[in-house]
Design a protein around this nucleic acid. Structure first.
Length: 927
RNA sequence: AGGACCGUAGCUCAGUUGGUUAGAGCGCCACCUUGACAUGGUGGAGGUCAGCGGUUCGACCCCGCUCGGUCCUACCA
């Protein structure tokens, strides 16, 4: 074995073997356990958030698989309608081709080509993460089976009246030419203006002042509203306004929507271009005048002068014209929230169109109940509030998109404008006796999230009642980010409850738990984004990347190329050496250690460094173990001709405790606890102490062969169990090492993946051994402390005197003399009688036993006094606090007896210790 | 406007029903190439747990307020 662990040498090898051997497929007849991967964009690539998410799912899956569950991790990808269509459109535009020139069919062909070409990237990257997904079942949201499920759901919901077509205001993206849902609109505060316009009364008796942030929409105004209780305007209600720049007269109406205190208390009402105005207009039967084309250009409903201007040009023109008419009262700077499309980035326009909707209010009722009654639990639980607040005020879901890439809506129109919904044109014709009358299919496609909402059951073969569906549905846990709780999680819950029933007809939830993880941010807590240039690619952390390549990668293909110089500078500063190859295991372990309670995580490159070192520690511990165990009898044949030493019994006991901790951590999705427990066991117990304790035994020519065998047996077996314990978190290094370690323990099997997971055995917890080792550690630490603080060279062997010990101390010191001598570099150990004259010595306490290292020639009096004073000071303060507490009669009277007793005991031992230290201090000071 | 979360060592974070000498990793200081590992070993320094008030015998933990930060939802034209 190399002296340093080289992850690159082993990872691909093991992954290929696992996949080829079919280890990722469900096996056995254990309890089913299933996780559905949140399908990544088929043409996308892996980012840190994916890496984190996959790492978590893979840990759960490997853990359950090793625990004997019939485990399925369903993998697949999403067609990502808008995102993918945009990418392909941009590529075509670069060649001077427009989507419209190509036509629908040809364009979709191009998208499929792009999917074939780039679709393998993310699945390759998933493999690099070690994800043990069942690739034989890989699905795509637009493959035949899933498309069939989409059609089925649409048709059935339509039959039930839960999908309908309606004309209303939608969020219209004028760049993408499609409606988008509320969730796809992001509103950010931006600097704008508030324009105050004078609207003259039709009878020329005066004017009202309206305030607006969108002057151009005044061309579509159909009323001015005031509050019904506003004294200032009561007399005007019902009168008419002569709308400037148009020839129209519009009424002054009264509506509670208007806030008397805000602005002038008069609101222009533009029902066709504002969601609030739309509602007001509906109440007062105001006409809707749509003044925009699909590109947000003024259309023919507006006065001729403005036609053909885009909305921003129209705004300027309207303001200029009103100014010319002296109708502008004032213009104030104003911050407002501007709605923009999350994909296109352009300002979204409320626009009147025909769209398809899902009646979400009805579907939400059982979906709310399922979380309320605990059928579905969120981890951490506080996300349930977020879920409830959204679901209880849910709006109907606009599911149609004016795109080409996606599931085309299964609806047909005849020439009279009748709508027919069905599984196919043939079905529609037959069912409605349409003969061969001309039918036109709806051009629109469905929101990508519509097919995603069916993911847990469409991937298992629904609408067929498949065996897989019966076995794996409901799935166990959904692992996801909070950012898509509304987009995805809520909709999955609604549609699954509606369509999937168990054999008794009871609605099934899609998953029993939702584990919500935080966002992965950069070391400064900033969101990772291409334009900030702070994106880390998990694959670069695994394989490493040199500085020049990293800079090139971060600055290429930027939406805003002017930022490139800045990105380059910060990259060179942060990674002067590029990024080292850390390997998948170190990256994964870093994720786990940071995955605490669903909070966002700041990913600091320094963290992964430490866990790369951890890999190396395991690697080298293995080298030590193998060098002592290979070609030796380690008890693989099951013979019992060995004896277990104190250290053996102790490390076995400690292993049980670690196993119990890890089990608890997994049950609570506390991957940080699991990682920490194993890390501590491996490094602080197994390596720091047990390996050191094994050396005096294994290197002693004269030692009892049964004892040596016991130690070898324990060394190798504890290591082997630890590898299994660690495997779900670090799959590659554990497999690599296990292959060499397992045979020495007598274990057989082709892979660690399918071995049983180590579970704590209570009967092997050995409190006696633990107490003895704790004593041993305390003594060694005491001596090391003296050595360290007194600056005694580590090479120098020193004598140790013991005083004031009880029978247990004497037994332990006798039994462990070899260990003490070796680990603390002690030349001799002798007991001092209590009344005997002690030589001048540096002192430490181990319980009530005093450790004395004679000072002759070794120790500096001043330094020892300082050390003693420091210790006396510390204990003194603590004692003072304790005595105060015990002197408080309220405490002794009211606190539980056992708490009081514990404090008394503590107080007593502190007093003794303090006395001993003070005596020693006097003795030294007296010299 | 409503709601959620957060504020613990220089940095990043743990701290599970209130009783611990408040912990870890990294960083820092000192010493050490000892036969698994310098991606290492040994020892050490470092915290008024944001602030104030309350409940309690006892508060990092429970309650209230204040300050600071993050996010979500809804938005006033």
């Amino acid at each position: 074995m190399d002296k340093v662990f080289q992850p690159a040498d082993i990872e691909r090898k093991w992954y290929e073997r696992w996949e080829q051997a079919g280890y990722f497929a469900p096996q056995g007849d254990g309890q089913p356990y299933c996780i559905m991967i949140p399908p990544p964009n088929v043409t996308g690539s892996l980012h840190m958030g994916h890496g984190f998410q996959e790492a978590i799912m893979d840990a759960l899956i490997r853990y359950q698989r090793m625990r004997g569950s019939k485990t399925l991790w369903q993998v697949g990808t999403d067609h990502a309608g808008i995102a993918t269509q945009m990418v392909v459109e941009r590529q075509l535009e670069a060649q001077g081709i427009k989507r419209a020139d190509l036509g629908r069919e040809k364009f979709i062909e191009k998208v499929w080509e792009w999917k074939e070409q780039s679709g393998g990237t993310i699945t390759r990257q998933l493999r690099r993460m070690g994800a043990s997904t069942d690739w034989s079942r890989e699905r795509f949201t637009m493959d035949a089976g899933l498309s069939n499920a989409v059609t089925e759901v649409f048709v059935r919901l339509h039959e039930e009246g839960l999908i309908y077509r309606g004309q209303r205001l939608v969020n219209w993206d004028p760049a993408l030419h499609t409606a988008i849902s509320d969730l796809e609109v992001v509103s950010e505060e931006e600097q704008g203006s508030m324009w105050h316009f004078r609207y003259p009364l039709a009878d020329a008796s005066g004017h009202l002042v309206v305030a607006t942030t969108r002057p151009e929409t005044m061309l579509g105004d159909t009323a001015v509203a005031v509050n019904p209780h506003d004294e200032r305007y009561q007399h005007l209600i019902g009168k008419m306004i002569k709308l400037p720049l148009t020839e129209r007269e519009i009424p002054i109406i009264a509506d509670d929507y208007v806030d008397k205190e805000f602005g002038t208390g008069c609101v222009k009402i533009t029902p066709a271009h504002d969601f609030n105005d739309y509602e007001v207009g509906k109440r007062h039967h105001c006409p809707l005048i749509n003044i925009f084309t699909a590109d947000a250009i003024i259309n023919d409903n507006a006065p001729e002068k403005y036609r053909g201007l885009d909305r921003f040009a129209a705004r300027k023109q309207v303001v200029a014209d009103l100014e010319a008419l002296d109708l502008v009262e004032k213009i104030e700077p104003h911050t407002l929230k501007v709605p923009r499309g999350d994909r296109s980035g352009v300002v979204i326009e409320p626009w009147l169109t025909d769209q398809w909707y899902v009646d979400a209010k009805k579907l939400a009722i059982p979906a709310i109940a399922a979380v309320e009654n605990g059928d579905i639990q969120f981890v951490p639980q506080q996300y349930e509030n977020m879920y409830f607040s959204w679901m209880r005020d849910i709006q109907d879901w606009c599911i149609s998109r004016q795109l080409w890439w996606g599931h085309q809506i299964p609806a047909w129109y005849d020439n009279s404008g009748n709508i027919y919904v069905g599984r196919s044109e043939a079905e529609v014709r037959a069912k409605n006796n349409l003969g061969d009358a001309p039918l036109r299919r709806d051009d629109d496609v469905l929101d990508t999230w519509f097919s995603s909402a069916l993911w847990t059951f469409s991937t298992l073969g629904w609408p067929e009642q498949t065996a897989d569906l019966k076995t794996f549905h409901p799935t166990n846990v959904l692992v996801t980010g909070f950012d898509i709780i509304f987009f995805w999680v809520a909709r999955m819950i609604m549609l699954t409850l509606h369509f999937i029933k168990d054999e008794n007809g009871v609605p099934q939830v899609p998953f029993r738990q939702v584990y919500v993880h935080g966002l992965v941010r950069d070391a400064e807590g900033q969101k990772m984004s291409k334009s900030k240039g702070n994106v880390l690619d998990p694959i670069d952390l695994i394989d490493g990347i040199d500085l020049e390549s990293l800079v090139a990668k971060r600055t290429s293909g930027m939406m805003q190329p002017q930022l490139a110089a800045k990105v380059e500078k910060s990259t060179r500063k942060q990674f002067p050496e590029g990024i080292a190859p850390y390997g998948t295991d170190a990256l994964r372990f870093t994720y786990y250690s940071l995955a605490s309670t669903g909070r966002d995580i700041k990913f600091d490159i320094g963290r992964i460094d430490g866990f790369r070192n951890f890999c190396n520690k395991i690697w080298n511990a293995t080298r030590y173990v193998l060098s002592n165990c290979e070609e030796q009898d380690c008890g693989a044949n099951g013979d019992s001709d060995y004896t277990l030493s104190l250290a053996d019994r102790w490390i076995i006991s400690a292993l049980q405790r670690t196993e119990a901790e890890v089990e608890k951590a997994f049950a609570g999705y506390r991957f940080d606890f699991a990682a920490q427990a194993i890390y501590e066991f491996v490094w602080n117990e197994y390596c720091d102490w047990y390996l050191e304790l094994s050396k005096p035994v294994l290197w002693d020519e004269t030692a009892d062969p049964a004892q040596k065998k016991g130690t070898r047996r324990t060394l190798i077996r504890v290591l082997e169990a630890t590898l299994r314990l660690l495997h779900p978190l670090m799959p590659f290094i554990t497999e690599e090492i296990w292959q060499r370690v397992a045979p020495l323990t007598g274990r057989t099997g082709d892979t660690i993946m399918l071995q049983n997971y180590p579970l704590a055995d209570e009967t092997r917890i050995d409190a006696g051994a633990e107490a003895d080792i704790a004593w041993l550690k305390a003594v060694i630490l005491g001596v090391r402390n003296i050595r360290g603080e007194m600056n005694i060279s580590p090479a120098q062997e020193i004598p140790l005197l013991l005083r004031n010990g009880d029978a247990e101390d004497r037994r332990r010191s006798a039994a462990n003399a070899t260990f003490l001598k070796k680990l603390a570099k002690i030349a001799s150990i002798d007991w001092l009688e209590v009344d005997a004259e002690a030589p001048l010595a540096a002192t430490q306490l181990a319980g009530s036993m005093e450790l004395l290292v004679p000072m002759a020639g070794l120790i500096d009096k001043g330094a020892e006094l300082a050390r003693l004073n420091k210790e006396i000071d510390k204990l003194g303060k603590e004692l003072e606090k304790l005595e105060g507490k015990l002197g408080n009669s309220d405490f002794t009277a009211r606190a539980p007896a056992e708490v009081v007793a514990k404090e008394r005991e503590k107080c007593l031992s502190l007093q003794t210790a303090l006395t001993q230290l003070k005596n020693q201090q006097q003795a030294i000071a007296a010299l």
